[in-house]
């Protein structure tokens, strides 16, 4: 038996809106630790890793580890029917073939339940090694989204370079080139507007903007985004989810032939 009650149901709505276009079907894994998902996009270039820790739920019951295969587009459709202030409860029986999403309005005057069929998914699980990244950039998530959107009007790829001068986002396309440099900025009153660059070694990597733009759909989840780079590793774009966990996107770089 599984029963997860999330007072801030909008978090789950935002998570689904962030990942449904990147991944079609995925297994949600429930354990004592929390509610998690790891899935790759169909081209095996990008990976989504979600963790919502059990402590973040108002009520978390998971009698045994359970893996539930879901079509993320259908799950997003159902969660879209929840109000932004609704409390969302996810329920499933062990060995059952469906999952129920229950939505309660804050004053309990409207209660809805939506039952969705589960599916068998052969998921490939990748082992993501713990890594020390050469450069970690923390910046406003809206700024990161703006940069990815702007650059994708010029080119298809972005070169992200971190030096002691700052972080540079560059692209080139048929009409010309673009470079956007952000410098470290810790002297703001509002920590959510800070840009913080931790660099061990200068690093420069090339990524497809199409995926970066897809990741920025998670912008409503967090005011800050963390971009972790190492020369021999996929980039990690991380959005923290309140006090509960994270939504991380991994993207393999483009490499010179």
């Amino acid at each position: 038996m599984l029963e997860l009650r999330l007072v801030q149901g909008s978090l789950l709505k935002k998570v689904m809106e962030s990942i449904k276009d990147l991944v079609n079907d995925a297994n949600f894994d429930c354990s004592a630790t929390g509610f998690s998902l790891q899935a790759m996009d169909s081209s095996h270039v990008a990976l989504v890793s979600l963790l919502l820790r059990s402590e973040g739920f108002e009520h978390y019951r998971c009698d045994r580890n359970l893996s539930m295969g879901m079509n993320l587009g259908n799950m997003a459709k159902m969660l879209k029917c929840a109000g932004n202030d609704d409390i969302v409860t996810v329920k499933a029986d062990d060995g059952g073939d469906c999952v129920t999403f229950m939505f309660e309005s804050p004053n309990q005057d409207k209660i809805a339940d939506f039952e969705m069929k589960l599916m068998d998914i052969d998921s490939e699980h990748l082992g993501i090694p713990e890594a020390e990244y050469e450069a970690i950039v923390r910046m406003p998530s809206a700024e990161f989204a703006r940069i990815c959107k702007d650059l994708s009007t010029i080119g298809d790829t972005v070169v992200i370079s971190v030096t002691k001068e700052g972080v540079k986002f560059s692209t080139r396309g048929d009409i010309g080139t673009a470079n956007i440099v952000l410098r470290q900025n810790t002297s703001v009153d509002k920590p959510e507007e800070a840009t913080i660059i931790e660099m061990e070694t200068p690093v420069s990597l090339t990524f497809a903007l199409r995926y970066m733009n897809s990741f920025t759909k998670a912008t409503p989840l967090a005011s800050q985004v963390t971009v972790s780079l190492s020369s021999e590793l996929p980039v990690v774009v991380e959005y923290k989810i309140a006090e509960m966990g994270y939504l991380r996107f991994y993207l393999a770089p483009k490499i010179e032939e």
């Binding site: 790759m40 990748l126 082992g127 490499i255």
Partner: peptide, 14 residues
């Protein structure tokens, strides 16, 4: 020209 590589180049299946 830069070539897109897959994640499996970096992360192994478990």
């Amino acid at each position: 020209k830069a070539m897109q590589v897959a994640l499996i180049v970096f992360f192994a299946h478990i």
